[in-house]
Design a protein around this nucleic acid. Structure first.
Length: 940
DNA sequence: CAGTGAGCGAGCTTCCGCTTGACTT
């Protein structure tokens, strides 16, 4: 008997299929992709580390040849697959039938190097019949489809890894750009821009309480006055003006006057219009619609929904949860129809199963819709006893949606009643009221299933009106004028953003949740409740991309890419020229060796980098103040801030971009700063302030005077808080430095104070750190002298910096001893000339002399890059500064001082925590905020 | 972003799509 190895993508799927296949088959999973481009240089094999494209993992000069590496945590699994293959007579690659699945099959083939016959099999539903059929009709791996996947992968890598560094240089380090995330961010930014542009309009209308002859009453709304329709929200544009001319806009006075003129007036039923209506159920869930529904109904985030769905899938309650298909298998249709007939009766079963056309662009449909698994479906009540609360809720959504999707339409009747009247001033008015009744509940039955009182639930979906006949006489008993304001378009939620991305064809079922995490992790988006707010960083990034990479953030970019990938998959075009056009420009394929392109990605991220004005892209215009001075929001290294001329102020974190109007900006800029008065110094009579500064909170004695004399300041101790600081504490701080005493030997004074590196004692030019801030006040002359008597290297900092942790023999190149030290940036090895940091995977204990030599050799290989780089960076920065003298002229002294100070180690160290400067010489780094909101504390 | 003292050198960040555990609390 032959043994066959079958490899699918998911372990849960493998278990299910194994049950169908029996003894002759071993079913395993690949657990997704098995190889990928290297994530960073660390993943590149040593032999290739030096090639210029090592970081990209794509040899752009050589037909974009990709370098594939097996992920570290996949290596063991590959070994296992190889082992299983040894005992097999044939191999079935049964990965999903889509672009990615085909690629996984090919990578498996390449990595496993099977010596036995290999067959590719595909199936769309996991039933015994479908699997058997797939086994008996295998095919070959579709190389073109694999090429299309490879092209997609390479394009995404080039986009992500070439454009992200542009953001590091021009905006902030560690930012990212990508085909999917950048469009997602742009969608949010554009919506916020709409909200910022939006002008609210006010309009009024009337509600009438109308009485029948028999005394019963009902409410109706005003629809027209003097034959003209009354304006409502939808009649206004975003500028707050009416978009139509044939409507009547009521203001408060007019509405109230009209209400007065109608009170007690006779009215007549002008028309009663009854119309049958029907509602059809929605399609079964796919990933995006499940995420939307769970977001709307359960307020779940996409990742919470997916975690619950994953558990339901793994435990056999639902089918695969990452799908873009709304198709139900034959088995599912049968199960649904039988269930509906049994639970609700034959009249709820449509004559033929419903099918739903897939509206998703680029749908790959490798799986079926998300539905209860199996041939008979457990009820939500049964499942809720077996799983956790989240899972139970998600299962209930899936069950109801799936069952409803195969039920009959809801049928009912809608009624619209128009009521005519005349105001006392003679104007004709018309009111309207509508209702609806359900005649046949259809699929609503499934949705009310499980509620305490299904009939009452159904009834709540109806709106009953009193019996009204044409010509009937009524009285307007009460009238109320209601004021309304138009609302800007709502912010996106996770659910609605997923829907928008899906409309654009951007992203895949497996990535919606992670894309949302990414844009939040990067600080592009933050959530308040369920609403997604774009940050100022997002504004800066999006405006940079729109201006300099418009093609890449075009909403149709992915759609066009998909069209091209389809052509690559069906042989109508080839991947290499396609990638060449993208990377080297349109003309790339015409010139020899692909040279000559001028509008490609590569040019834009290299030669043309200088065109991107960091200052400009980081400035988001807000408006002008009454004097015509421009106000801009800017993204700086220490957070977003507002700038008007020389005035700057931090933008409070919780403030949404669209709330930062000109008025609000002026309020922030002119508001009393976050400074607090602690009290008055009894000696000088000067006011003592607490302020937030670059290096944290500090106290200040008096205010800065015009004659350039600076007030005395002192940092707060870490144990103190700005809000609770007392005058006593403040004065104590301001009394520093404290004279500890005199050295009896030479009479020189010893002082104790706080400094850049913390508390210390000082005598003349000698200083030593203290261990705690409190010691500034408690240290005695003897203790201070003892400290000062110790050599400098004895301090805790210095000990770590200078004491070699390990000696690692003599370097064969330099013939000098190698030592391992712990430094500011972590452990490193050095032979005195060359210094090399330990890399990922290296440990202090595990380092060998050989490894140390290797590290040093690698470091030498790269040359004295540090210094030369710095030289270039510095020169560039200077050149850039001199290029824009106009911008600098306003506050030359201040800016120059600041620039100089950022170059000082102290400033660098202070900023390193939040964001390393890297070689981002051009990035916005001046942050001259004078004022700060009290609740924002500076980074240490 | 206040202004106060020491010293030793970087290397990395990032994409999109497939898929699960491995770890803790």
């Amino acid at each position: 008997m032959t043994k066959s190895l079958v490899i699918v993508e998911s372990p849960a799927k493998a278990r299910t299929i194994a049950g169908f296949l029996g003894d002759g088959y071993v079913v395993e999973s690949s657990i997704g992709h098995i190889r990928d481009l290297p994530k960073s240089a660390d993943d590149v094999p040593p032999a290739l580390k030096k090639v210029p494209w090592a970081k990209l993992g794509v040899d752009v000069e050589n037909d974009f040849k990709p370098l594939y590496v097996v992920d570290a945590d996949k290596k063991q699994h590959i070994q296992r697959l190889k082992q299983l293959l040894k005992d097999a007579d044939e191999l079935y690659l049964a990965t999903d039938e889509d672009r990615e699945g085909e690629s996984i099959a090919w990578h498996l083939y390449e990595v496993l190097q099977p010596k036995v016959p290999v067959r590719r099999m595909v199936f769309h539903e996991i039933t015994r019949k479908a699997i058997q059929q797939a086994l008996s009709s295998p095919r070959e791996i579709d190389r073109r489809l694999v090429e299309a996947q490879e092209a997609r992968r390479i394009l995404d890598r080039l986009f992500g890894y070439e454009v992200s560094p542009v953001l590091w240089k021009k905006i902030l380090p560690k930012l990212s750009a990508g085909r999917v995330q950048s469009v997602a961010t742009r969608v949010l930014v554009e919506r916020e821009r709409e909200r910022m542009r939006f002008v609210t309009a006010k309009y009024w209308d009337l509600d009438a309480l109308i009485a029948k002859k028999d005394g019963s009453t009902f409410d109706a709304g005003l629809v027209s006055v003097g034959r003209a329709r009354v304006a409502s929200g939808k009649d206004f544009g975003e500028d707050g003006r009416l978009t139509k001319s044939d409507v009547v806009l009521l203001d408060e006075a007019q509405a109230k006057a009209l209400a007065d003129g109608l009170r007690g007036q006779p009215m007549t039923v002008r028309s009663v219009e009854r119309k049958p209506y029907k509602r059809s159920p929605s399609a079964p869930f796919m990933t995006s619609t499940l995420q939307q529904e769970a977001g709307r109904k359960l307020r779940f985030s996409t990742s919470r929904t997916m975690k619950a769905a994953q558990r339901l899938y793994e435990n056999g309650y639902i089918t695969y949860m990452r799908t873009d298909s709304t198709t139900l298998s034959e088995a599912a249709l049968t199960a649904a129809r039988r269930l509906i007939e049994e639970m609700y009766g034959r009249e709820y079963v449509p004559s033929a199963p419903r099918t739903y056309a897939n509206k998703v662009k680029n749908a790959q449909e490798a799986h079926e819709a998300i539905r209860p698994a199996g041939d008979t479906w457990k009820t939500p009540e049964d499942v809720s006893r077996e799983v956790g609360p989240d899972e139970a809720k998600v299962y209930e959504l899936v069950w109801k949606r799936t069952v409803a999707s195969q039920m009959q339409d809801v049928r009912g009747e809608s009624i619209v009643v128009k009521i005519a009247g005349k105001a006392r001033d003679g104007r004709d008015v018309e009111f309207s009221v509508s209702g609806n009744t359900i005649q046949f509940a259809g699929f609503y039955r499934a949705y009310v299933e499980g509620s305490d009182d299904p009939e009452a639930e159904l009834e709540s979906r109806e709106k009953h009106l009193p019996e009204l006949v044409e010509g009937e006489s009524l009285v307007a008993r009460e009238l109320k004028a209601n004021g309304h304001e138009t609302q800007p378009p709502a912010r996106y939620t996770e659910a609605s953003l997923v829907r928008r991305l899906e409309e654009l064809g951007v992203g895949r079922p497996s990535t919606y949740a992670s894309t949302l995490s990414t844009i939040q992790d990067r600080g592009y988006v933050f959530k308040k409740g369920t609403a997604l707010y774009p940050s100022w960083t997002a504004f800066a990034v999006v405006s940079l991309l729109e201006k300099h990479f418009p093609e890449l953030v075009d909403y149709a970019f992915t759609a066009r890419m998909e069209d091209d990938l389809d052509e690559i998959a069906n042989g109508a075009q080839n991947a290499v020229p396609w990638l060449r056009r993208f990377y080297f420009g349109e003309a790339a394929n015409e010139g020899p060796n692909g040279a000559g392109g001028d509008n490609g990605l590569k040019t834009m991220v290299s030669e043309n980098l200088g065109e991107i004005d960091a200052r400009a892209v980081n400035s988001i215009p807000i408006g002008v103040d009454p004097n015509g001075v421009e106000i801009v929001a800017r993204v700086g290294r220490y957070g977003p801030y507002l700038q008007r001329g020389e005035d700057t102020v931090s933008i409070p974190e919780e403030l949404a971009p669209d709330e930062l109007t000109v008025e609000k900006s002026l309020a922030l800029l002119t508001a009393p700063s976050g400074d607090r008065e602690v009290g008055k110094d009894p000696e000088t009579g000067l006011t003592v302030f607490v302020k937030a500064g670059r290096f944290g909170t500090y106290v200040q004695l008096g205010e800065a005077t015009k004659d350039g004399e600076k007030p005395k300041t002192a940092s707060l101790f870490s144990s103190m808080k700005a809000e609770t600081l007392t005058l006593e504490q403040a004065l104590k701080l301001l009394s520093l430095p404290r004279t500890v005493g005199n050295d009896p030997a030479d009479g020189v004074a010893i002082t104790a104070q706080n400094g850049r590196y913390g508390p210390y004692v000082q005598k003349g030019t000698e200083s030593r750190s203290l261990e705690s801030e409190d010691q500034i006040f408690t240290v005695t002359t003897e203790q201070a002298l003892a400290l000062l008597a110790q050599p400098k290297t004895r301090g805790p900092r210095r000990a770590a910096a200078t004491g070699p942790l390990k000696e690692l023999g003599v370097d064969p190149v330099s013939q000098k001893p190698i030592v391992l030290r712990e430094g500011r940036f972590g452990p490193y090895v050095s032979d005195g000339d060359t210094v090399a940091s330990l890399r990922k995977g290296d440990t202090i204990d595990g380092i060998t002399p050989e490894r140390a030599q290797e590290l040093l050799a690698e470091r030498r290989e790269r040359g004295p890059s540090t210094k030369s780089k710095r030289g270039r960076g510095g020169a560039k920065a200077k050149a850039a500064a001199s290029e824009k003298p106009a911008a600098e002229k306003k506050a030359p002294a201040k800016k120059a001082a600041k620039k100089a100070s950022t170059k000082k180690p102290a400033a660098k160290k202070a900023s390193a925590k939040k964001s390393d400067e890297g070689d981002g010489a051009e990035a916005e780094d001046s942050r001259p905020a004078k004022k700060r909101s009290p609740d924002v504390t500076a980074e240490p």
